[in-house]
Structures are given as C-alpha cells and as structure tokens.
Simulated scan of single mutants.
Amino acid sequence: MGKRAATGSRRRGRQRSARRSKRRLVLPVLALALVSLGGGAALAHYNGRADVAAPAPGPPAAGPSTQTTTAPPPSPRPTPTPTPKPTPTPKPTPKKTDVPRAGAGTFTTARATGDAVGTGGSLRRYRVQVEDGIDVSAGEAAEEIQRILAHPRGWAAHGRGRFQLVTENADFVIRIATPDTADRLCAANGMNTRGELNCETTSGVVVNLKRWLLGSPTFAGPAAEYRHLIINHEVGHEIGIRQHMGCPGPGRLAPVMMQQIKGLHGCRSNAYPYDEDGIYITGPIVS
C-alpha cells in the first residue's frame, strides 16, 4: 500500500507540474491572441490592471454615404464681350449752298397776284421773275416778296407807298438771277456788282441768287431775314430814296438804306426800315 501510494503521489505531482507548465505556455499565447483581437484594453482587463489605457477611438471608417447631396451648379462661363465695330462716320448732308454761277438768261414770270398793301402814297405795281433753271419757284418767291412788302416794319405799313403783286402791266420788276446774269443786268445801268451784290435799275430790282440763298456774312440772321433787307433796300431806291446811309453810332441799328454787306462799322445788322416803335431808322448820308 505504501509503495502504491507513493507511486500515486508522484504521479499526481507530475500531473500538477505538467498542468502548471501547460498554463505557463497558454498565457502568452492567449495574451497575443487578445492583443491581436481586442488590443491593450482586453489584455488589461484580463490582467486586472487599469494602467494600460485603451487607445482613443479613431474616426469612423469611411463607408458609402446614404445622404444624397446636390452638386452646386457649374459657374456660368462669362459671355465674351464682342468687340464693337467702329461706327462709320456719317457723311454730312450737303447743304444747298452751291449757287450756280450762270443761268439761262431767260426768266419765268410768277403767275400770282395779290391785293394792294399799304395805306398811303401812290400805288406801285410789280411782278416777280425768276431766271430759268435755278431751282427757285417763281410763285413761291412772289409770295415771299409780297409778305416782305406787307411787313408791319416795312415801307407800306408807314405810308411810304402801296404795293400790289401783278402778272402784267407792272410799274417795275423784281428779278432773281444768277451772279453772272445779275452782273450783266446791273452793268447795263453802270453798276459793278462783282458777282456779289444786288442792284436797282431803270426797269426794276435785280436780286443776286447768291444773296437770296445764302444771306450775307455781315448779317446776324438767317438768309430768310436777309431777304427782307434785300427787298427793302432796293425797293427803297425804287420809291425815291436814292442815297445810301451810314451807321448812326456804335451799337445802334443799321439803316435799311445802308450797304450792310460792305460792313456794319459798329452798328447792329437790321433788315427793316422802321424799328418796333415805328420810328424810321436813319443815318448819315454817305453816297
């Protein structure tokens, strides 16, 4: 019995020693397995120690997003600004300033008549003629001259004569002619108009087309107003005012019987025999 007991005791001792050796082998392997599976926290938990801190949790692993996002619209591409084409410089509209130097030398009489205008003096009947081919209507010119002679600052309105537009049996003629034709008609009465001036002849008044259309460079007003000066000056000669006048003083109105185209000499240009108060505009006799 003693021998068997001793033998059994030795057997049990060897078994316990084998179990301890086996446990010593298992622990490191288990530790390595825990580290690989759970990290230091699992190992600390197994050892019952809290001095091995668990690593801070990392950011969540990126995965497919379940939220739908709308991509911002693409920025609009800037529209290229077209290079403007240079605007062509418009050609100026030609003014009607080209006055023919010479004409046909023949005349058309205006087929127009009117009532006598004026309140005093003898009746003076006139007709209007326009040189052929100069693009001026004889009828329109006659109507304009009729208005000029009836103007409230004109001769007829202040008792210096009565005037009536007729087509025949006229006392004098008012002709509108090209510069060459005007020079010829005026030269027949001893006057040199040099292609620029008007004149009064034994048969009536000669109006230079250039002056009728363009006015005068010395006259401060449109050509339509200058026509008043032409008619009033030449008809003034026709009714008996033979001499020319000069400027009555600086800044004053020039007399209608002054040759204003030759210079104003300090006066202001004026197209009417009378001022707005009905006073006759006069000046010193010069010729």
Rank of each mutant, 00 (worst) to 15 (best):
K3S: 14
K22V: 12
K22Y: 08
R23D: 15
P28D: 08
A33Q: 06
G38S: 11
G40V: 14
N47L: 07
V52R: 12
A54T: 02
P55G: 10
G58S: 13
P59Q: 12
P60I: 05
A61H: 02
A61I: 11
A61V: 13
A62W: 07
S65T: 15
T66M: 12
Q67P: 09
T68W: 06
T69W: 08
P78W: 01
T79I: 11
P84D: 07
K91D: 14
K91N: 12
K91G: 10
D98V: 10
D98L: 10
A104K: 00
T113R: 04
D115C: 09
V117K: 01
Q129A: 13
D135K: 09
S137D: 10
A138W: 05
E140N: 13
Q146T: 15
R147C: 00
P152R: 03
R160W: 13
R160P: 00
R162N: 05
F172W: 05
F172E: 02
T178F: 05
P179F: 08
T181I: 07
L185M: 14
N192S: 14
T193G: 01
N198P: 06
T201K: 03
V206D: 01
V207Y: 02
L209S: 04
K210P: 00
A220E: 12
G221D: 05
P222Y: 12
A223G: 05
A224M: 02
G236P: 05
I241A: 14
Q243M: 12
G246K: 00
R252G: 10
A254W: 02
M258F: 04
L264Y: 04
C267V: 10
A271F: 04
G283C: 01
